[in-house]
Design a protein around this nucleic acid. Structure first.
Lengths: 140, 140
DNA sequence: TCTGGCGCTTACCAAAAGGTGCATACTTGT
DNA sequence: ACAAGTATGCACCTTTTGGTAAGCGCCAGA
């Protein structure tokens, strides 16, 4: 029963700030991930962060390839989770817009590095995907 | 100073750095998200970033609730995508460990803000989930 | 009048994601 | 001898996710 794991930790140069025990989550990242789980949520948050209050239709066109069903659904969840605020101007042709709550805004800000990473490494990412597609004919 | 975010009061567009048109992606965030899609990938990356080279079993125990199938699968993808490196010491009782490539490390670093966000807002997040659970008996 | 847009809902389905459990080849501890 | 651990693979099956298509009430423009 002696511990066979000999972790020769050689001072990780960077990245180290995850509090070990949170109530219910393995770490802060875990908690965050559960909130932004969903194919479009990060994109929605990010878009709203950039554009300010946005009408449904605009959002729909901005987040490419999203369907009404999905967009509405994710927006509802984000709203229920207190990340976005829905404003319904009770007008004749429906008019509604969505904006970030302070909490949502803070999350959106935490997403910025991911966006930057993506921009910086588009080349690698593209290569990766090209490979994924050509390397097989059915799996995945 | 390195912080691009100018968090002013409100109604002002903070968060703005997403290059409008990338080849194939709607923006950098989109690209990133496709790479880290998968329930456990961010957690795996993050954990590896903290612990340095890690053996399979350790990882397995660290990322709570993950099954062998899933862990292996995601590790393979991460490896194929050039984010992690697998080292197989061809030993008698199998011994393998995983570590981040430079690319993987850079991504892991971009995840740090998300982790911090989660830590900072555990309270809110917990509330959200409690609500999700109690607010219904079948939907969602 | 017919068409189309607005914001949103619903029913129905296909695909993907993920879980369980068994198997492997070999070794070490009991 | 036997259970257990090590790193994976595989088959089977359930759950979740997401997409399609249709439609609704209302009004403006052709």
């Amino acid at each position: 029963m002696s511990d066979p794991i000999v972790n020769s930790a050689q001072t990780s140069p960077s990245v180290q700030s995850c509090t070990p025990t949170l109530p219910g989550f393995t770490c802060g990242l875990d908690a965050t991930l559960r909130v932004i789980a969903g194919k479009w949520k990060p994109l929605i948050l990010y878009f709203l962060a950039q554009g300010g209050p946005t009408r449904y239709g605009e959002l729909r066109r901005a987040v490419r390839d999203v369907s009404d069903k999905m967009l509405i659904q994710q927006l509802k969840e984000l709203e229920a989770d207190g990340l976005v605020k829905r404003t319904d101007y009770k007008e004749v042709p429906p008019r509604v817009d969505y904006s970030l709550t302070p909490l949502g805004r803070s999350l959106a800000e935490a997403l910025v590095p991911l966006c930057s990473w993506g921009e910086t490494h588009v080349a690698e990412v593209s290569r990766v995907f090209a490979q994924r597609d050509t390397s097989n004919t059915g799996a995945r």
